[in-house]
Design a protein around this nucleic acid. Structure first.
Length: 355
DNA sequence: AATTCGTGGAT
DNA sequence: TATCCAAGAAT
């Protein structure tokens, strides 16, 4: 079936699409792959500076495969969803070891690499190799849900299956690279979440939601749930030389593998922090100085962070440097993979308190 | 199928 | 200020 959808989209893309994003230059599978992983659930404007710095430090798959994991995480610090960074390096090592450093060119082999799912694999095939494959990211979901007036939330399997069917249907044999970029650009620039620019849309003629004047109904929104509230102490413990104690997070779970401040059970009162430091960390500390607390919001819960500063009075090395505990100067700590609010706390404690 | 996993832009 | 939700994947 000859699909006018793709023809109109491609014509629009030629004159109105984005042709000079950083990963469009020196295009190769590695750069396309890294950009696609960074762009998962993350806006383009946020990704650009991270992508530039990452490519400077890890210019190819070998550099990434050989790097210390802390170096990789530090380049991801602030970007969120840190499993992406850990998976990225694992996949780089797989590409080097199992694929002789060359990215595979089949959907199945790409999806075998951790962190690469159906849509990302298709994006790599199309963008890097010009192989026909259908993508279905947030932009495409929005465009297709409106064009075909597909009701329901795309998180539901039945809705998602319909969207995938339409995505496959519209993807052309020719110019898949431009088509793939073009449909994402259309979603980002014209078929936007709110107030879409339907008057300048090349697909207006066939769009069912537009014909019904109901673009705002598509795609269906996610059912909302109240986010639980959690609380924690975070302690900035300094030794006599002005070094701070940092603790590595467990490999899985929130902020997995990142370095953070030691946390103490919120059941402790402010007047029990010295005792808590002694019990949890084996450190003798002086009077705590409380910093204003603030709330950090994750995708699925709120965290009240109550920071406190304490100085070590006894011997700081009762806590030895290890794989999960380190004494570091502030500027050394800032070179690690730190969660955003902890980086903020260590950089501008008073500013962080205002968040 | 439903949860988990971050952060910040946009409104 | 609060809410939604981004170039999703793993479990």
């Amino acid at each position: 079936m000859h699909d006018r959808f793709a023809d109109k989209l491609l014509q629009w893309y030629d004159s109105h699409g984005r042709h000079d994003l950083p990963w469009h230059h020196n295009r190769n599978a590695y750069r396309v792959w890294v950009s696609e992983i960074m762009l998962q659930q993350t806006q383009v404007t946020t990704v650009i500076p991270y992508f530039e710095a990452f490519m400077e430090r890890f210019p190819d798959v070998h550099a990434l495969a050989e790097a210390p994991v802390d170096d990789v995480l530090s380049h991801w610090s602030g970007l969120g969803y840190y499993a992406r960074a850990r998976n990225l390096q694992k996949a780089a090592q797989t590409v080097v070891q199992d694929f002789a450093g060359e990215f595979p060119q089949t959907q199945e082999e790409l999806e075998s690499l951790t962190g690469i799912g159906r849509s990302t694999a298709a994006a790599i095939l199309a963008q890097a190799f010009g192989i026909r494959a259908a993508i279905l990211d947030g932009n495409v979901k929005r465009v297709l849900a409106r064009y075909h007036a597909i009701p329901g939330w795309p998180g539901q399997t039945a809705v998602l299956n319909q969207l995938w069917h339409r995505a496959e249907e519209h993807t052309p044999e020719q110019r898949v690279r431009d088509y793939t970029q073009g449909i994402m650009d259309l979603g980002a620039m014209v078929c936007t979440r709110s107030r879409p620019a339907c008057e300048s849309c090349p697909l207006q003629e066939g769009c069912t939601a537009y014909a019904q004047n109901e673009t705002s109904l598509y795609p269906g929104s996610k059912p909302k749930k109240a986010k639980p509230e959690k609380t924690t102490w975070m302690v900035i413990i300094e030794d006599g030389e002005g070094r701070i104690l940092l603790e590595r997070r467990p490999p899985s779970g929130i902020w997995g593998g990142l370095w953070s401040l030691p946390e103490l059970d919120p059941a402790y009162g402010a007047d029990e922090l010295q005792e808590a430091c002694e019990q949890s960390l084996g450190l003798d500390c002086g009077e705590p100085e409380l910093i204003s607390g603030f709330r950090h919001t994750f995708s699925h819960y709120h965290l009240h962070i109550q920071p406190a500063r304490l100085n070590v009075t006894g011997r700081a090395n009762t806590v030895a440097d290890s794989d999960h505990l380190k004494w570091l100067h502030r500027h050394e700590a800032l070179n690690l993979g730190l969660p955003a609010p902890i980086r903020s706390l260590l950089t501008e404690p008073e500013q962080a308190a205002l968040l």
